[in-house]
Design a protein around this nucleic acid. Structure first.
Lengths: 133, 133
DNA sequence: GACAGTGTATTAGGTCATATAGTACACTGG
DNA sequence: CCAGTGTACTATATGACCTAATACACTGTC
């Protein structure tokens, strides 16, 4: 599934959260897919079950997962979700920050634009089915 | 100069690092500008001097500041710096992550592009003088 | 009902980063 | 000399994080 880097400055549960998020966003995990059980993933990653649970709880809180008692933890569906304005402006802020940094490093606006286009090109295999915006 | 949010999940010294970085990158602080002394900023922000020192040390390590014993801490010049490939790919990775997230939230590739263009427009007042790329 | 496998909750203990407090030293310019 | 700079060091407290161990409620299957 993924690996944990004990030397990372990120905490373990945070790494799990980010990794699962990425698996969901890249389509490696789809809605209704079942995740490894707390105990199972605990053994796989050699990490305490409580840490796995903490990550799953956080992912559930953020809306990426849902759990059914006695059954397991599953990927939540997000189609038709109302647009999360708070999250959008958060992302915009991060984008702005990255633009600033590139500009500071000596890149022109045009060059930055072409870098971004390049990144988008790599995602041209994704389709826009079901996109609302 | 800026404020510290004690309720933030970011540590204090990390907030200082990020804030100073932003001031430099947005041009509020220019090369050779002198920063508040450790003790002075310590009083202003009501934070321990050691914490300020830790932030300054980190900023110096990252190349944003330099210090002269007995004189103070100053904004470093970065013109003509060799391109930091590691930093560039780091930024690209963050951009990629943001794109993924926007796409996951239901935005089409075209919409994402227009959002990015919009952000770049807000920076059209910046000029490209001295840009190498 | 028994059972194995789920999620969940709780208590306890250890480690580490962070922040504070206080003190001390070397350097610089006036 | 002196005030103001950066820097170094020890000590202490707090909180996040992680681990360990145990227990309970739920689900589906036999």
């Amino acid at each position: 599934m993924f690996q944990i880097d004990l030397k990372s400055r990120k905490s373990i549960y945070e790494q799990i959260v980010d990794n699962v998020k990425e698996l969901i966003m890249t389509g490696m995990l789809n809605a209704e897919d079942r995740l490894p059980s707390v105990r199972e993933l605990s053994k796989t990653l050699t990490v305490n079950p409580n840490t796995i649970q903490k990550a799953y709880r956080e992912l559930e809180y953020q809306g990426y997962l849902y759990t059914v008692a006695g059954l397991g933890t599953f990927v939540a569906s997000h189609t038709g979700l109302p647009v999360d304005d708070k999250k959008i402006s958060e992302i915009k802020g991060r984008l702005q920050e990255n633009i600033r940094e590139l500009f500071y490093l000596g890149y022109s606006l045009n060059k930055i634009k072409s870098i971004f286009d390049e990144l988008l090109e790599e995602r041209s295999d994704w389709n826009d089915k079901g996109k609302l915006y």
